[in-house]
Computed example of a mutant assay.
Amino acid sequence: MARKILVVLSEYGYWGEELLGPVTAFDRQGYETHFATPSGKRPVALPPSLDPAYVDPPLGRSVTTPEVALRARELDESDRLDDPISIADLVPERPYNSAPDFLRKAEAYYREIARLDETVVATYDALVIVGGSGPIVDLANNERLHELILAFARTGKPVTAECYGVACLAFARDWEDRASIIWGKHVTGHCKEYDYKDGTGFVGVDFNMGPPPYPLEYILRDATGPDGRYHGNVGKETSVIVDHPFITARSTPDSFLAGEKTVEALESGLRRYGW
């Protein structure tokens, strides 16, 4: 039976190559890939990610080859992304402490969360969070997605995150001790040198945020703690870190490698790479 992978995308724009890279590796391996978004809305690629003429401001060059742009556009326009799973339907919402009858609601919530291991995690072999600027809006602080990440990590199944999607790992934490799930881990993610100074954009929102609202590198340095480490690998063409069960990718050029390492983790038991 083919392995199944759950790929999570933002509804506010994903980077084309950061979806194409992992999906290419999974298709080559014969995996069955299912897609999910926060509310079940169809995801759309960020327009610059499909334009080989677009010059990435921090790097001063195009980061998308004509071949990748074409293949990413074909994937973005295909029917594969037409009916994504709704994370809101998959994972319950944690009740407010101020909600009437909070204790009963909390008990029901934890019963449903426990079932994630028996349903979603039992169905899928790995979880992948695709990057781009969109995750800043609807994935980074998405508590339902955090619970999904925690469920996969509990069972030791790979969790792959790219670029600004790595923020989801930093903010996913047990409700009791509030420590990040990547505390003590080695990770990479969008480094400060790669951040825009202006022009951070989103699909469906006519708003130029300027720079990203938070520097992911600083958050990852803090979230990994004294026994973990953030690796920027600035100046190196690629940066992918495997520290089981997490596979993290810095940015666009790391997308295909991240997919390959996810396959290695599943097929060969890869537990450490890049540090």
Rank of each mutant, 00 (worst) to 15 (best):
V8I: 10
S10P: 06
S10L: 10
G13Q: 11
W15Y: 15
E18K: 02
G21M: 10
V23C: 02
V23Q: 02
A25L: 00
G30W: 08
H34V: 15
H34N: 14
R42N: 09
V44D: 05
A45N: 07
P47K: 07
P48F: 09
L50P: 02
P66I: 10
L70K: 13
E74N: 05
E74K: 09
L75E: 06
D83P: 04
I87M: 10
P92S: 13
A99P: 01
D101F: 14
K105V: 05
A106R: 11
Y109V: 12
Y109W: 14
I113L: 09
A114V: 12
R115D: 14
R115Q: 15
D117F: 05
E118D: 14
Y124N: 13
A126K: 01
L127Q: 03
L127E: 03
G131V: 04
I136H: 08
I136S: 03
D138R: 05
A140G: 06
A140I: 03
N142F: 12
N142I: 06
T155N: 13
K157S: 10
V159C: 01
T160N: 01
A161N: 00
C163H: 04
Y164D: 03
A167T: 01
C168K: 00
L169Y: 06
D174W: 13
E176F: 14
S180D: 09
I181Q: 00
K185A: 03
V187A: 01
G189C: 00
H190W: 10
D195K: 09
Y196E: 13
G201P: 07
V203L: 11
F207Q: 07
M209A: 14
P215L: 00
P215E: 00
P215F: 00
I219M: 08
A223K: 02
T224G: 02
G225F: 10
G228P: 04
G228M: 05
G228W: 03
G235I: 05
T238E: 12
T248V: 02
S251Y: 09
K261E: 13
E264W: 12
L266E: 12
E267P: 14
G269S: 15
Y273N: 06
